[in-house]
Amino acid sequence: MEERHNKLISRRIDLAVTLVITMFFVLIITFSYGEFNKSMTNVFIILFVMIGAVVGYYTNITAAIFYSIIFNFLYASINIYLNLANIYNIGFEIYFWMVAVPLFSIIFAYKGKILKEIQSENCALKKENEELVMIDKETQLRGSQTFFDELQSYMNISNRYGIEVYLMLIKIKYHNEIIRVLGEAKYKKIINRISQIIDSVLREEDRKYILRNMDMFGIIFLSNKDGGKYVEKRLKEAICSTEFKEDYLINRIKLEIITGIVIYDKNIINNPYDFFRMAEKDMEYDV
């Protein structure tokens, strides 16, 4: 089905390009052998042809048709008046332009429409691919796509085997202000460094996520009742004490994080979203 769709789009592009080339060829032949170049009026009308093509390409077919109607109405009205006043006789070139201007405008509008559709589809596919990617390319942590599904899996493990499951959320304090002061590029360096620290401090079997759409990190891990606070303390110390020796500006800012940590309780938490909201709520008390 997708291959058929791609072939159809390809044929539409080929048709539009072929029509454009053909029309320019006809225009060149007409000017070369039709003696259109002897009249300055015809040379001037080419400007309207190009304007119609640009209007059509950057807007839509409706705008191209509207432009063509206005041009034909004005052009025909002027020539009818000149003919009635015996100033100018209606010749072949008048009919030619009344057909050429709409054709150029509509064909370029059609070509622009196809290209816009391809661009929109390409953006949608890129977004879809990014959402399907499990591992974040920059940080090598897991993305947010599988976060809630895996959180549910850990909740099921806890229910079945009675193992303590923790959810910890980490957010950079004043992250909006840091972006405004340092810019996106340096903020990205901070994110990458924190990701490295999280990956090095925690165990291989712990689930580590970067939740970019929520500007935070998520961690799911198994531990005893006192282990969660110990992990939280270690991470805070490691992140807040990190230095950016290669970047003086970042190093001048005191990096602080806000954390929220919750242990799974099946009597209170019914689904992964409740679990997440409780951890998010716990962040409010980390001041």
Rank of each mutant, 00 (worst) to 15 (best):
V262C: 14
K173I: 14
I220W: 03
D136C: 04
V20Q: 11
I118C: 04
R180H: 14
A124W: 00
Q145M: 15
K233T: 10
T62F: 13
I118E: 06
N156M: 12
L15D: 05
D136Y: 00
F147I: 00
R207G: 15
Y264W: 09
I178A: 03
Y57G: 14
E2Y: 15
I9C: 10
Y161E: 10
G112A: 08
V262L: 11
I179R: 12
N192Y: 13
E243F: 06
S105E: 04
S200R: 03
I118G: 01
I114S: 05
T146F: 10
R4S: 11
I261L: 11
Y67E: 05
F96W: 09
R212I: 03
D226E: 09
N42T: 03
M216Y: 00
I21F: 12
I78G: 08
S200G: 02
I210Q: 11
M278Q: 10
R142P: 03
A85T: 10
A16R: 01
D274Q: 04
T41I: 13
N72D: 14
K281E: 12
I70E: 09
L74D: 07
V99P: 05
Q140Y: 09
A85Q: 13
I194Y: 08
G162E: 03
D286E: 01
S77A: 14
S10Y: 09
Y33H: 08
K281F: 15
L249C: 15
M214W: 08
T139W: 06
N42Q: 03
I263D: 06
N60A: 01
I191W: 11
Y58Q: 15
F217Q: 01
H175N: 08
S77G: 15
T30Q: 13
L47P: 02
S32I: 05
I46T: 11
L132M: 13
L141Q: 03
S10P: 03
N89S: 14
G260Y: 05
I28Q: 09
I250K: 14
K254N: 09
I21Y: 08
Y174F: 13
V55P: 01
S120V: 00
Q196N: 15
R160S: 04
H5K: 09
V287T: 03
Q145V: 12
I253M: 13
K137L: 06
E117F: 04
S223K: 09
M50S: 09
M23N: 04
Y174L: 12
G218V: 00
M155K: 01
I28N: 04
